[in-house]
Structures are given as structure tokens and as C-alpha cells.
Nucleic acid binder design. Sequence first.
DNA 1: TCTTGACCTTCCAGCTACTGGAAGTCTTAT
DNA 2: ATAAGACTTCCAGTAGCTGGAAGGTCAAGA
Lengths: 129, 129
Amino acid sequence: MNIGLAAEQSNLPPKTIRYYEDIDLIRPARSENGYRDYSETDVHRLKFLQRSRSLGFTIDECRLLLSLYEDEHRASADVKAIALAKIDEIDRKLAELQSLRATLANLAGNCHGNDKPNCPIIDDLAGET
Amino acid sequence: MNIGLAAEQSNLPPKTIRYYEDIDLIRPARSENGYRDYSETDVHRLKFLQRSRSLGFTIDECRLLLSLYEDEHRASADVKAIALAKIDEIDRKLAELQSLRATLANLAGNCHGNDKPNCPIIDDLAGET
DNA sequence: TCTTGACCTTCCAGCTACTGGAAGTCTTAT
DNA sequence: ATAAGACTTCCAGTAGCTGGAAGGTCAAGA
């Protein structure tokens, strides 16, 4: 099938699919007219990539997951380790965002938000206690 | 003062400070030998940028905040609006990360994590129910 | 048959916010 | 005199696409 249909079925933009080919994540056949020709297997890979990316895995992690996906002798422990590492990463990001949020909420809570220039948010950014 | 000292005082790497000049966030004077020459005011701006960036504001938001910082006739409502918008953005990111985390934790929780190939994480990524 | 429009191709540039490195200049200390 | 260290500019690379230009291909309608 052509890239348009593959895009529709995998829920990925054609541009992204071409990019994935550029970075060797997928290697579709070519029709005689030079068009890319995706097999069902190719579409499975694309869907796998779409889902993996949407769960926050990086391209390199996707590459690894894809190789495990296609390895019949994989150990599920290897897959689980990747997922747990990603959860750790997410937890770190959550903590950071929560801390930022608390700081901003505190600053905004102390700001009158009127037409006067006096502003504790600006004061904080300027390093004034 | 030279860029090294300005870097030390603002807690920003020299490379970053030069980049900020490139994108017109700061315009230091030049000494006769061609070296950048930062005033106390420049350092205040740099510190302001460092703090703003560390709170998650984008460069463009910093540009805006900086203009408010230097505007004696600013309305604190304008500053507060930026902070509240950023909090909203953080909340959206938090929700997304929490959702990702829940999905991954659920998948990992169902995976035996042994040396067998059977793996519900891979199954999910592959779109298999 | 011709044309129009949709789809495909490649290639290049740009996005965010820096960061690394090369090649060369200047200052400072010994 | 020289060597270390700090400074300069410029170019390239990071992640993961996305937009656009210039052109080739294909199917349908007048």
C-alpha cells in the first residue's frame, strides 16, 4: 500500500513515516513507480511505533522495544526493565513539575493582579527577597 | 566585567550568555579588546533570565517578563496572567504524565518480568488485546 | 486527449534552547 | 619568552519531527 494509506492505518503523518525510514526504523519496499510500498508487517511496525511513542518512549527506546517485539526469544524481564526505567523518569519529571507548580502558585497567590506595578512574582524573578 | 565573571554571578554558562545575546535578550558593551563587558544591570538581567528559565518559562515568555520587569508602569495583572497560564500548562503536562505513568505501571504490573517471551507490555504496544 | 487535482518523490530549512568543538586572539603569570 | 587560561567567532549537532518548494505519477472527468 502507499504511504497515505499506511499513514491512515498507523495514525502517523506521512512525513513522520518518511522520517522513520530516514533513521532506519522501517524499510518499506518500493513500487516500480518509485512509491513506497508498505506491507501489513510494515504497518504493524508503524502502529507499534505510534503506540510506543505515545507512551513517552524515545526513538532509541522504540528501536530497542521493536527489536524485542520481533525477537521470539526475548525475555519479558528486558521489556519490563525498560518500562520501569521510563516510570522512574516520569516520576522525576512529575516531581520537578510539581515543585515548579508549587512555586508559581505561591507567587501568583501573593500577587494582587491589578493595575499597579508592585508584583511579588517580578520581585522573586529579580532575586529580591 | 568579563563574561566569565558574569557567568559566575548569574549562574549561567558563558555559552548560554552568548546565546542570549545572539537572540537579543541582552546587549553588553564591548571593551577595547573586543571582550564583552557586563554592567551590574546586565547581570541583574542575566539573573532574572536564569530564575525565569528555571521556573519553566520559555525564552519568549522570559522576553515578555523581562520587559515587564523593566517597565515601571507595568500592571501586576499582566505578570500574574503569565504565571497563571504557565500553571495551566504545567497542570496539563502533569495530567498527561500521570496518565502515562498509570498506563505503564499497569502494564509493568502485569508483566512477569522473567526469561519467557510472553509479555503484556509488548502485546499492548503491538495493539493486541 | 487533455487537464485537473490528489498523491507521491527528494531535498532543504526551521523549530527549542542550548552545547561542543575548532581555530584564532588576548591577558596574565612566571 | 612562553605557556596557561579566558576570550573571540563560526559551524555543527542535539530530538523528533514539520513545512515548503520543485517536480513526477496517477485516476477521473470534459
